[in-house]
């Protein structure tokens, strides 16, 4: 999936440190870009429902908002810290790692 930008936000959590990152394709290594593209393809990201929350109230869990932009479309999903789908979890963990790294390198 040829995305141009991914916007990532993590809010909540015990410490409530909000993490945001705008990840552009050109800023990522080839390996990171390929991993993200493959995950987005496998998830068929534009067809995912906007809300992927578990429906259970879990105090202090994280809440994630992810927006993927391509030249043709833009799609946003909101997920909480305990999604059942392993691929969604993989995507959240990968984006979280990249965002944490970017946050510290500012």
């Amino acid at each position: 999936m040829e995305f141009t930008q991914i916007k990532f936000e993590r809010s909540g959590g015990f410490a409530n440190i909000r993490i945001t990152a705008e990840l552009n394709l050109r800023d990522l290594s080839d390996e990171q870009a390929i991993a993200l593209k493959e995950l987005l393809d496998e998830l068929d990201f534009p067809k995912l429902p906007t809300k992927l929350t578990s429906g259970e109230t879990v105090p202090d869990e994280f809440i994630y908002t992810i927006t993927v932009e391509t030249e043709k479309w833009q799609h946003t999903i909101i997920a909480d810290g305990v999604p059942k789908d392993a691929k969604i979890q993989e995507l959240l963990e990968l984006l979280n790692r990249l965002a944490r790294k970017k946050m510290r390198n500012l």
Binding site: G13, F14, A15, I17, V58, P59, D60, F62
Partner: peptide
């Protein structure tokens, strides 16, 4: 790399930070 702790409704869960 889980920088959080939470109560999941039945137990406490703690991460190791960074």
């Amino acid at each position: 790399g889980y920088d959080n702790a939470f109560w999941d409704g039945t137990q406490m869960v703690y991460g190791d930070g960074d």
